[in-house]
Design a protein around this nucleic acid. Structure first.
Length: 223
DNA sequence: ATATCGATTATCT
DNA sequence: GATAATCGATATG
């Protein structure tokens, strides 16, 4: 039998995103983010995400109600919500839930698969070796810089269409253990565990604090 | 390895 | 006028 991974990534159906962001977040782990534009082809595996719910989630941009900035997360599912933060960085999300209901998943870290040198150039760094690879895409701001993602270019982009410059593909990669912790950097609902990442993956962002993680639904003590 | 801090601006109150 | 879903540099143990 042929292996089912290592295939060209196939787009995800719109229905994939018409669900609670917590389910979408988990299912997005292991999928591939593709940047395909003239003269540039980048791919990287999604290894860390966070779920942001609707207007009832105090940490979500949706909590403020629909504004010009956050309109995409109230719109149709499967579209890119890109925002600018801290005067420096862009962050990438994908809209979830049916149109009219808010919800999204934030991309926090990727594992580069192809286009390493192009990503390094976009990040303005020089790769000395594999130890530098996480600097390319470990962190929501970093991965956007590596992929050249900006609000003016990519906000509202359809991530289910392979003819988009930015889209999400599935190569049937098999995910192993998933860890779950509170979301990073939020001040409201700071304890709610809606951050998901591939356990033991070297490209996950943030301090090594895998404390409070939950693996396969069971609490795992980590010293 | 962890803590603290400054940069810099779109967006909203 | 205040805030922010971050990053990189610096300081310290």
């Amino acid at each position: 039998m042929p292996r089912k991974d290592n295939l060209d990534p196939q787009p995800l159906p719109r229905s994939f995103f018409v669900r609670d962001p917590r389910r979408v977040a988990r299912q997005l782990l292991g999928k591939i983010l593709v940047r395909h534009s003239k003269g540039l082809h980048l791919t990287a595996r999604i290894v860390e995400v966070e779920a942001y719910l609707g207007i009832e989630d105090p940490a979500a941009h949706a909590a403020a109600g629909r504004t010009l900035r956050n309109a995409v997360i109230f719109g149709p599912p499967g579209h890119a919500y890109v925002y600018f933060i801290y005067g420096n960085h862009y962050c990438l999300n994908v809209s979830c839930e049916p149109e009219g209901k808010a919800g999204c998943v934030l991309f926090r870290a990727l594992q580069p698969l192809s286009g390493f040198e192009e990503m390094a150039r976009a990040r303005g760094i020089h790769l000395r070796g594999p130890q530098d690879w996480p600097k390319l895409t470990a962190g929501p701001g970093r991965l956007c810089q590596a992929f050249g993602i900006t609000r003016s270019r990519d906000n509202n982009c359809d991530l289910t269409s392979p003819s988009s410059e930015l889209w999400i593909g599935d190569d049937h990669y098999r995910v192993r253990a998933i860890s779950q912790t509170p979301r990073i950097g939020v001040t409201k609902a700071a304890e709610v565990p809606l951050r998901y990442f591939l356990r033991d993956n070297e490209f996950v962002s943030g301090p090594k604090a895998t404390r409070h993680s939950v693996v396969h639904g069971r609490a795992i003590p980590v010293s």
